[in-house]
Computed example of a mutant assay.
Amino acid sequence: MNAPEEELHKTPLHALHLELGARMVPFAGYSMPVQYPAGLMAEHLHTRSSAGLFDVSHMGQLRLEGPEAATGFETLMPVDVIDLPVGKQRYGLLLTDEGTIIDDLMFFNRGKDIFVIVNGACKAGDIAHIKAGIGSRCEVIPMPERGLLALQGPKAVDALKRLVPGVEKLVFMTGGEFQWQGKDLFITRSGYTGEDGFEISVHEDAADAFARALLSQPEVKPIGLGARNSLRLEAGLCLYGNDIDTTTTPVEAALNWAMQKVRRTGGARAGGFPGADKVLGQLAGSTPLERKRVGLVALERVPVRDHTELQDDAGNKVGEVTSGLLGPSVDKPIAMAYVRSDLAANGTRLNAIVRGRKVPMEVTAMPFIPPNYHRG
């Protein structure tokens, strides 16, 4: 059951969402805007064509401080932390001892510390897990006083540079310290929509005023969780709790690209992370890979939702949809699913069982739309 409204946490932009006419829903223990009066479709398409502002202040922000922060953090993930240059950001995965995914996250080398953003629903557990794993090697400092905004879309840079000159010099997965009206901002050129854009960490006391300043720019409209979900699905990006969780390994989730070579093959830093034997065995093919995350496109105009069963032509269950909807930009039903590994090749035909009816689907490459990141 969802918590009553009075028990839900509120972000620093809660009053602004209500003022803008948002429909609020419980999400990750917070009262969050799922959509505004324009509706999901309009919000999605506006983000793809112009600039959308998302409140993602429910996410967890923390910093790791101390000379052993990078070496310590690397012991928790199959990811290269030590060699990440100052000023650069990277995608990471916290793993269980069985090699399954506790959470996915973003981390940034600020020189003075490692800045980490984790998922809202997982943040308490993540912080406890990190403290237990490396708390003796560095300081693990949660930052609950910080709000987090995401400004996404091809015109995001035009809107943001008027308020914060210099951000236009950033390229994808870089960032830095900026100021707006005397308030400190930490900005990265990144996001979770497949578009160019920025994520902006701002003190809760300045979050409302800064969000209003962004919304006063002609390119920018407010965007809710509904469009955030459809945008990330078109971009082929996993949602924790749907497409990855503690039952899935990075290899099953087709996240091999997130594990750099230095952690996978040879050398002193290969392995040494939780579940390494299983993960590296799956990568090498010595441990059987029974299922794999794939993209699917429906061959009929029938949306295929989360948890829909997938069957082969003989009627055998061969997988399950983890995220699915009618993609507003691609204008066809798309989905992510886990399917039997021998059926994961592009072009494979499967049947989704929607209200007892077979809907033909085809395995396809992701992302479903070309990414629009600004790489310089």
Rank of each mutant, 00 (worst) to 15 (best):
Y338H: 10
K131M: 13
G241K: 01
E300D: 13
V279K: 08
D342Q: 10
A337F: 11
M41Y: 11
I101C: 09
P165S: 11
K292F: 06
C238F: 10
R301H: 13
I244L: 12
S230G: 00
I82Q: 13
K332D: 02
E290I: 11
F115R: 14
L231E: 02
A38M: 13
M173G: 00
V220R: 12
A207S: 14
R293I: 02
N2E: 15
K358E: 12
F210P: 02
T265S: 13
L20S: 01
A254R: 13
K332A: 13
L325T: 13
R48F: 07
A22V: 07
H44V: 02
D196C: 09
D103N: 15
V363T: 07
T348C: 04
M41P: 00
T322K: 07
I244G: 04
G92R: 03
Y338A: 09
R375H: 14
P288M: 03
T246S: 12
V56T: 14
V164N: 07
P4V: 01
V167G: 02
Y192H: 15
I353N: 04
E65S: 14
V79Q: 12
L225Q: 06
H58S: 12
R146V: 09
V79P: 00
F27G: 02
T75G: 10
A132V: 00
F198C: 02
L350T: 09
M259V: 08
A298H: 04
S57N: 05
V262C: 04
E199G: 07
S136P: 01
L45E: 04
T265P: 00
K10C: 11
D243A: 12
V171G: 03
M143C: 15
R263C: 11
G166R: 02
D80F: 03
M366V: 15
F368E: 09
G224F: 03
D313V: 06
D277R: 13
T71Y: 01
L45T: 08
I101S: 08
A15M: 06
V359P: 10
V86G: 09
G285V: 00
A344V: 06
L148M: 15
S201W: 12
L237A: 03
G267C: 12
H58I: 09
K183P: 00
A28H: 13
D243H: 02
R291W: 02
L170G: 09
P12T: 08
S190A: 12
L163R: 00
